[in-house]
Nucleic acid binder design. Sequence first.
DNA 1: GTCACAGGTG
DNA 2: AATTTACCTGTGAC
Length: 941
Amino acid sequence: MLDSQSIPGDSSEEDFEWEEVDVPQQIHETNPELELQLEGPAPRANIEITLHSGTKKDDSKKAAAAAARAERILRTRTHKVHTVCLLANARVRNKWLNDELLHARLLSLTPLHLHNGFALIHKSRVPDQNKRGRLFEATVTRLAEWWTGTFFSVLPTGHIRNRTFNENERDLALRGNAIFEDEESDDGERIRSPNSLMKHALMQSGSRDTSAQLFTALCRALDIPARLIVSLQSIPWQSSVGQSKIKTADKDRPPSGQKGKQRARDTDVLSQDSDFEGAKTINPQRLVPWGNSVQAKGKGKAQPVIKLRKTKHYSENRASTRATLDPTITPPVFWTEVFSRADGRWLPVDPIRGFVNKRHVFDPSAENTFRTGVWQENRMTYVVALEEDGFGRDVTARYAKDYTAKVAKVQGVGIGRRKEWWDSVVQLVTRPYRLQRDDTEDTELYNHQLTEGMPTIVAGFKGHPLYALSRHLKREEVIDPPVELGKFRGEPVYPRSSVISLKTAENWMRQGRMVREGCQPMKMVKQRAVTIGRKREMELALEKARTDTHGGDGQEDMQGLYAKSQTELYKPKPVIDGKVPKNDFGNIDLYVPSMLPGGSIHIPFKGVAKVAKRLGFDYAEAVTGFEFRNRRAIPIIEGIVVAEENEIIIVEAYLEAENDAEEKAHAKRLDQVHKRWIRLVQGLRIRDRLRKQYTSNTDDATPQHWLDTQNAEAHQGEQQPGGYLTTADDVVKPFHLPKDQHTVLPSSLLSSTTGDDGAEIDEAVPERSGAVVSHTHPRDSPLHFTQDVQMGEVSTDLPSRRSNAMPKSMRELAEDDLKRQASEIAPSNEPERRSRSTPTARTMGGGRVKALVKSGTNTPSKGNSSVKRKNGKKRIREDTDSASEDDHRFDSAASTRDGNSSKGNSSTTPGRVLRPRPQKNVAKLREEAELERAFRRAIAE
DNA sequence: GTCACAGGTG
DNA sequence: AATTTACCTGTGAC
């Protein structure tokens, strides 16, 4: 079954191979109700399913594209999830940094003169604001110097590092389930709670990250507003980053040798850097498990192995990239911002390297000696500042070099919805109200972006908001006022604002603009055929050019592009005498509203064209655009354009027609419903009759016995031997009544005979199919079930409903109604019931039901067709004539339906159509009316 | 009820 | 940047 879905719907491919597939009979297992419907011989069918092996190239191409797409989505999701997780992690850390005990401990470890240093900075002592600011900065610097120099020693490992998607995937694959078990063996330092932080504080050592976090905590302890800054090292969504380099490195490097394994941690490092010279550009740690699964497996099981592996990473790390990876001299992932109250600014502090108020030292892209595009262990994409109150702000712009040129792009500006996503993430941690300092900070960050100089790499100019190089111009772009801002490696740099986009004359037309007379194209470009039609056209032209002038080709397939300034608004030809101007295709182009001709109006409804045509007005279908499917342009037509003066008439006619169509559809639906009811009733009648025969013919087959048989049959889903029953079930098969309903069959039903009149049958309807009596709204009730709903399904919910209210028999209902009518002239509950449906609907329903009842009465098996087909309206009318109150409803409906044509034919009521009434006595008609009403009530209940 | 035809649709 | 075929549905004639 699945296979059948995976077959491409393309019927043009014919080299199918056929395979026999055994279709399991799931339905029998899962749905006992449906099981009933499947009874009968051999539902087990062999379905043949095609699996075409297709043209392999195309297939593999498609598959590759699909795989690439899937991978891209996976990469993006991984990136997002990872980013959010890292942010969440940082927030937790940030919260822990508020721990009072931690503060106390840190303070107790801090020399008093540093405490005092901050306390001394006060307006009263240092009145000059600028001086205060400088003093604060100096004090912070001293604090940082003390922190790094004497207090906290940074371990070379344990800090967060960036990894590429591929690396991560590879590691995951190799580690399998072990991923959560061997955290200790990984290079992450475990901080489980503020206590862990305290431990490190007391030990005065830890990773670079921990150091920065503790420093932040210390600042807070010193009553300096301090933010924990984190540069989220999420797995990049780009696939290209670092891939190539790693691959080549893989080749170059044999699996790590014994030497590396046996190296003990403390023998270190600095002395052994020559062993793996070849892998300088990568972090070899990632490569260790590669082709060395034994080691990967073994780790985590035995302590020594872990140690060894860890050591090896470490040494290899150091060996290969010591210069750049030393955490004490490379840009951090965590750092601090302290708020200078005097300056009203946040000052960046890198406590490890001792930088204060130097925002440019945090971007690793410059520090990293790796070549661009190659994997970096620290990538600056999202920098978030987490404040004491737990809220965060995106401060990437402060730190990232070339933020506008580079980082904003990585963050996803202009790439799908990624930027939106990041904004939404930031929004999650943003303080719901803004502080003064937020505003000043934002303006500061914005200014950073503006004053950010020209990009330092060529790619930075691509899509740069301020600058542009001609090499990055798109095909249809041109630099109009060629004012040079400067040079970048010899290339002229232009302001972005000078870049203007051009369009072909045709495309301007699509925008409702015309190229002005005599304008020369700003640029000539080679024509590109998007659709096959255009391609054909081009080829034709080319062919012609070749045959005409033997050497004169080359220029033929060029087309001119024009700037907007060369165009003017297109003025369509006006409507004259109600005639709408049309194009070559008989339509009117209406790509923009301004293309609507004067004196005309756009009626954008689907199907108005037919109406306008019918009414004989001149019109043009409005082409509002094109849709492209398999390299083919299909005009999108939205309604029509007509002369203004015809609008009202057409719209009215359209609305009416729509109304009509709706009614018609409803009537049709009703008709179908009725047909089903007829079938049900007839089926029941036949069943009844046969049952009757059965019970009278055999003495020992009591009704009870019969019921038992039926139940057994239903349960087992197979036929019991027993002639009459089989026949009966065959006849009634489509309806499959619920099992338990037989238990409540009234005895009157069992005794009814074949020749009984309609009332008997009607009685059976609500009695046996419970759904009929359990709904109120005719339009939505199962009375109107659609083709795909089986009778059997309708009645499956019988038991539950039945338990609520035992439906009355048709006869009972009729009697009730009669009684009620006798007692009160206008039945009190009528209006309420009526109000729930449209007059038309109810009347139609009534009329048809009536017809059904009658046909059932007179000719049980074959009479229905005549009822259905032969002028239903007439039939309805004569029926409704007899039903006093329904009459009025119907009449109003009838008059609207027939429009003006039937007006004036009325005698008793306005709008009524008078028809000869068939010969019936009053009593009979009345009885019918009652029956109908009762039937409807039964439905409505 | 069946057939042919027209028109819409994906 | 302006197009095709198969299929379905509704309609009217018989």
